[in-house]
Computed example of a mutant assay.
Amino acid sequence: VLFAPAVLALIILLLAVPLIPATPEERPRDRRVDVLGAVTVTAAIMLLVLGVERAAHAGAGTTAAIIASGLALIALFVVIERRSSAPLLRLGLLRSGPLVRANLAGLLFAGAFFGFQFIAVLYLQELRGWSSLQTSLAMLAVGADAVLAPTLTPRLVNRFGNAKVIVAGLLLAVLSYVLFLPIGMDTVYLAMFPTMIVLGVAFALAYGPLTIVATDGVEESEQGVAGALLYTSFQFGAALGLAASTAVIVAVTAGDGGAAGLLDGYRAALAVPIAAAVLAAAISAFGLRPVRNRR
């Protein structure tokens, strides 16, 4: 599973290189790369995710030390960016309210989305004994966003605006996770289907508009940085969501590996995506406030 994407990426790279047009050198040759900033923020993210994941395995002291180290590295990253002549992230970019809201909502939305997928797959395969193919087909409805995102979402955005569509998508995500709470040992797929299809609609409504809001109003020269910041938030959120869901499952099922214990663990872990989606909706709701005209 981990090896196949690497091979596919290599094939795409080899096929793409001849198609990339030659362009004149535009960047100054003396441009420096903020290596220290990149290493610091990457290490900080890794430690924070590790701290959340180890919460159910290690003692409170160890967990607190790991998380504190991650937060300390974030503080160091801020200091480095303030003093760097070519910062990885110009901190002034974070003064944009829409950009910050989009990143926070994107982090939480991704955490909820990937956390739920992890829980659902474990439930279907480990508890219900479904095969990988059956599980994939069961979750296929979530892929409805591939059809809705380019067709329905742009129309809704044009009519209601990004903020309303994002909030609607996040609230639908909350609904989809709540609908999965009654799962049991013999729940039929028809009872799970509403969760899958509603989640697909939610993803279609939230994901695209979040990327628009995250880069709206940003200077053209910083569009790449704003986009990269959002996708970093998505990836960071996904890792946190998986780590938090795992920690809850491990904590609840500790000492009880039976079917009833696993089911309790999966149900308890659903609190992670539900809480994350609710918080994301609350943050995005601030974007619904009317903007006063400036003279």
Rank of each mutant, 00 (worst) to 15 (best):
F109P: 00
L107Y: 10
I119L: 08
H57A: 14
I11V: 14
L13Y: 15
L262S: 12
L89F: 08
S69H: 09
G143D: 04
V252L: 08
A146C: 05
R289N: 12
T151L: 13
A228T: 10
A268T: 04
P28A: 12
V39G: 02
Y207T: 07
A260I: 05
I119A: 01
A65K: 12
P18Y: 08
G255K: 02
N103R: 02
L93T: 10
D216Q: 15
S131C: 07
A72Q: 08
G161A: 06
A280D: 06
L93S: 12
A102V: 03
D34P: 05
A102P: 03
R29A: 14
S136N: 14
T151Q: 09
T151V: 13
V33K: 02
G261M: 04
V1N: 12
A269N: 01
A191G: 07
A56K: 01
F286E: 05
R83D: 08
I119V: 08
L137M: 13
P209E: 01
G92H: 13
I11T: 09
L89K: 00
Q223K: 15
R128H: 10
V100E: 04
A149H: 04
A238E: 02
S96R: 13
A144F: 12
T23W: 02
Y231T: 12
A282L: 15
G237F: 01
G255C: 10
V78W: 12
T195Q: 12
T40Q: 11
A68N: 10
V79R: 15
A141N: 07
A260V: 09
V41F: 02
G287L: 09
F180L: 04
